[in-house]
Design a protein around this nucleic acid. Structure first.
Lengths: 210, 210
DNA sequence: TAGTTAGTTACTGTATGCAATACTGCGCGC
DNA sequence: GCGCGCAGTATTGCATACAGTAACTAACTA
């Protein structure tokens, strides 16, 4: 039997399709077509769709299946501060001993981002890596789960964001300031900059949305 | 066709069984038996189980189905502050105009709790109502969803808590102080007391756990 | 021509079936 | 006596089948 359930892979694949808009906002999900396209039966597909609906990446319309929620600027305005506060909380709940060595590791990623900014690279993926690393020492698995489940919602809105190189440089600077604050043991300052980093991302986002 | 999917009802029923320990901590869930007992087929039952696993109330063991996670004092110590911070956040994000009239409504429930404490009533249900009311004006549906999904985890540990009448009275007092702070427009004070209320509940909980 | 409605198709929600793995109990070897 | 292996059963994970409703088409009415 499958050592990893099909629904896990499917959740990833469908998430990707929502994020790159192959599954367009507002569109209904046709289970038969999608199952055929993904090469699985409807059963594990539905399991994945239900999981995604629980996370808010899809919505379930009783009797009408699942659909991709339309874009809503208000939703973005609520998701960014939410993720910001959740990450800040995770950071504050990481004890000093667990933070040992983290600032250096973070700055390594920041260097990579700077290089990617100069030579052209996947800034968004590096940004993800930086944030994942920041939270990697947090001992509260439930909080981490909430963050993991919420971030994909936000990425729908973020997609066009890191194309704006202007803010990428700014963001790298903030990341370095966070690492520096962590070196000083100043969790409050670090989490404040972290929240500001997210909120600024939201501000830039607003410019792109039609 | 069902206007409300079976899995929704099933999630409620299974949650109840986990909370009242008919589904014991550490036990595996037998899909065939449970489906027969609930009078449904395995398909919607599995959908419900997957939803519950996404929320952390069950865990999925690949190839071995689902099981109720064992009790873990550390988990309780992490869940209470988490719910505390989430509720405090929801409260701080509720605007003053949306808060209008809320303190009075909250105190009505506090009165009912005081009466229940004196004459014997369901304190836990009233406590739930008070907290639900507190959050009812929060405009961030995603945050509310996270809170809704997290609270059942906590209630597994809470079950024995409100039997200790001593703290119930104390809790009612804190609830009134929160309502008073909201009347003054002092959201910071209100959320501080709210966090303290949750943390104190955790402290009392520790006494009961064997 | 626009709105309405019957007929038809398509799709979801649930049930059942099937194949492969995990568990159980007992016999056997050491 | 204790561990190991093996046969048989139980159970999961996925696929398929079925039933009922929503959506579409198109003729019909005014």
């Amino acid at each position: 039997m499958a050592r990893t359930p099909l629904r896990s892979d499917l959740i990833e694949q469908i998430t990707t399709r929502v994020l790159d808009r192959r599954l367009a906002a507002g569109a209904r999900v046709n289970e038969v077509h999608l199952a055929r396209e993904l090469g699985v039966s409807r059963t594990p597909l539905r399991e994945a769709l239900i999981g995604l609906a629980d996370r808010g990446l899809l919505v379930s319309a009783p009797g009408r299946g699942f659909l991709v929620p339309p874009f809503d600027p208000d939703e973005a305005r609520r998701l960014y501060p939410l993720v910001a506060e959740l990450e800040a909380l995770a950071l504050r709940w990481t004890s000093p001993v667990e933070l040992a060595g983290l600032p250096d590791a973070l700055d390594v990623v920041s260097d990579e981002m700077a290089a990617a900014l100069a030579h052209g690279g996947d800034l968004s993926a590096l940004d993800d890596r930086w944030h994942a690393l920041l939270l990697s020492r947090c001992p509260n698995p439930h909080l981490l789960r909430l963050i993991e489940q919420t971030k994909p919602l936000l990425k729908r809105y973020e997609s066009a964001y890191f194309a704006r190189d202007g803010h990428a440089g700014e963001s790298i600077g903030e990341h370095r300031r966070i690492a520096a604050a962590l070196r000083d043991g100043d969790l409050a300052a670090a989490s404040a900059v972290l929240v500001a980093n997210w909120v600024k991302a939201l501000a830039y986002l607003g410019k792109d949305e039609k």
